[in-house]
Design a binder for these strands. Sequence first.
DNA 1: AAGACGAAAGTGGTTGA
DNA 2: TCAACAACTTTCGTCTT
Length: 320
Amino acid sequence: MFVKGGIFLKNNNKKYNIEYTNKCPECSSSNLTKDYQRGEVVCSKCGLVVHEDIADHGPEWRAFDKGQRDKRARAGPPTKYTLPDKGLSTIISTINRDSYGSSIPTKQRAQFYRLRKMQKWGRLGNSSERSLSYAISELNKLCSQMNLPRNIRERASMIYRKAAKKNLVRGRGVESVVAATLYIACRIMGLPRTLSEISDISGLKRKDIGRTYRFISRELKLRINVPTPLSYVSRFCSELKLSRKVVEKSSDILKEVIERELISGRGPVGVAAAVIYISTVLCDEKRTQKQIANVSGVTEVTIRNRYKEITEILDINLEI
DNA sequence: AAGACGAAAGTGGTTGA
DNA sequence: TCAACAACTTTCGTCTT
């Protein structure tokens, strides 16, 4: 056990090791960058995503002197949208002691037992709250299977709450709304996942998730930007175990592609896949179209079509 | 044998009348 | 609401390495 800012971290925790050793397992460079917004630790030398889903253990505010700190400090953890009651509930303790620490007489213990039971019922009593807690457990399942950082989880459940409040879940199935809110949260936080990825893991149909996603974003008037191909590049590259060089090459090519307006109307995932393919060939770290197709979820044909267009217009020669 | 290529037909979403 | 349309997928035969 180690202590950091009053928080105990377990020794066997993988996150702990990475954050504290600060060495890349691939090239053992100590130049790791933490990106709390993306929830990733990236090696600046080789581009390996050393760890995803890092948590920010610090408070969400900053204080510059003792006065400010005292003013802002408060009891308890920050509120969490992933708990059904946002972590704000009062719970009758199971320890049979009063506020002075002396034990409660046996006579009254039965009474406290009944109180606890009734409070439990009351907390998760009505059906909307029960379905909310079901939705959140589904969300947590999905997120951990997809290795998504905490902030996306929080954002997704925030959106789900809004949807539930507006009665948008009814008749749509909790699972598909959960998947859709997760999809939205990923895009808002700049870590887009494709509909196919979420569909594969949740076991729901891509079409259904897509339809629910459009419905929810329209009804809640969410303004969601179209993801740029760039937001997929680093993730796909790290899944393909490609070096930093390829990532940089890809974003260089992508810049030109965007300038020449080669992406209008094209699916961003296909463009990202094609650019990565080109970069792997140019950087002598070639991956087959099939490998790239597998991680990106578009077909080889699409990669071919995109990369033909791109190489033609940008005058890139892939021979030799 | 594996990878790349491209033609052709099919699918699902968007758009505009 | 419906047809036209572009992007993308699936399938498959052919060529190259």
